[in-house]
């Protein structure tokens, strides 16, 4: 780590991004359940109410459709709302405002307006919170034209991408994996942003490509470390953004290695893994040594008991095994 960096958690990195953007732009304000006095259910918004007051850090009633609807109206009329939806499972309650309103208002009105709205929400299983607090629903929103979908995996990316999201004039849904808030990593000192829509080649390798999203970076790295000991060099690409999708980086890597595994915590069927597999097949078919392999969440509601829940999420062991069968 250079002297221009320090090691902080994803929680603190996001918190810093919010502080810096609120400082930079008076039009930025926060709305959500328990974000003010309580500092957020995962303590991501700590200190913001004290600094910016209740007019810019608004504790709301439990009313997701209303909150997001208000944010859409405010965004169209000159403000930059950043809404927190505590769990992405609750975005279902606001889905009309996200899908039919925020995503479409610019288009339906012939480009007359912009909806500079950020929705921060959490994803991810592993916290033993069962079927309605553990889903990863990012693929749903990536399906909808007019929305951008961002899901960072490191503190530096989380900070830089959230700042870009807040400065973006389009609706952005920003997924934070609730199991990663304590994840630490180097974060540059001072001002920087990371552009939305660029995947990150996290590690270079020649033998196979693992394309992953959000927290799936970590089991992918673990598997890659084990494979490295066996002389198998894995290229790891962290998508960081699924809409827009950095197709070029993925196809380039697939052309190089000829073996691709996609790992994502959304349900496997009709999800991110399927879309990436299709794009790579279309873009790199002649270079592939085998079909693109996929690991997503099991197609079941997320169960409560640890023994059950753990088997529904892609693991380092699974990633290791799948790659072994691919390259051997």
């Amino acid at each position: 780590m250079s002297t221009h960096e320090r090691t902080i958690t994803i929680r603190d990195a996001i918190n810093e991004a919010l502080f810096e953007e609120m400082e930079r732009d008076d039009q930025v304000f926060l709305m959500g359940e328990d974000i003010g006095v309580a500092g957020g259910v995962f303590k991501v918004t700590s200190g913001l109410l004290e600094r910016y007051g209740p007019n810019r850090v608004i504790d709301t009633p439990i009313a997701e459709a209303g909150i997001v609807g208000l944010a859409v109206g405010a965004a169209m009329t000159g403000m930059h709302p950043v809404v927190e939806i505590m769990f992405c499972d609750f975005t279902t309650l606001a889905s009309d405002q996200i899908i039919n309103q925020a995503a479409k208002l610019r288009y339906m009105t012939g480009g007359q307006c912009a909806v500079p709205l950020v929705i921060r929400t959490t994803m991810g299983a592993g916290r033993r919170t069962a079927a309605q607090h553990s889903q990863s629903l990012h693929a749903w929103f990536a399906h909808i034209p007019g929305i951008k979908v961002v899901l960072p995996s490191t503190p530096a990316d989380a900070k830089g991408l959230l700042k870009s999201a807040i400065r973006d004039n389009n609706p952005v849904i920003f997924f934070e994996d609730k199991m990663m808030y304590n994840q630490k990593g180097p974060v540059p000192k001072g001002e920087y942003t990371i552009p939305i829509g660029e995947a990150h080649v996290y590690r270079s390798g020649m033998d196979a490509t693992v394309i992953c999203t959000s927290s799936m970076l970590y089991p992918s790295l673990e598997a890659a470390d084990r494979l490295k000991e066996e002389g198998i060099h894995i290229e790891i690409i962290d998508l960081r953004t699924i809409k827009p999708l950095d197709e070029r980086t993925l196809i380039k890597s697939a052309q190089k290695t000829g073996h691709v595994l996609v790992v994502d915590e959304g349900y496997q069927s009709f999800g991110v893994t399927a879309e990436i597999a299709a794009r790579i097949t279309e873009g790199a078919f002649d270079y592939l040594d085998e079909p693109v392999r996929r690991l997503g969440a099991a197609d079941v509601p997320v169960p409560f008991a640890p023994a059950l829940e753990d088997m529904t999420i892609p693991s380092a062991d699974q990633i290791y095994s799948v790659i072994k069968t691919m390259v051997s």
């Binding site: 997001v68 609807g69 208000l70 109206g73 169209m76 009329t77 403000m79 405002q97």
Partner: peptide, 16 residues
């Protein structure tokens, strides 16, 4: 759906 959007515009008015 336009009802909360109007309330949001009103919130924006107050903030601005």
């Amino acid at each position: 759906s336009g009802i909360p959007i109007a309330v949001g515009a009103a919130l924006s008015i107050r903030m601005r």
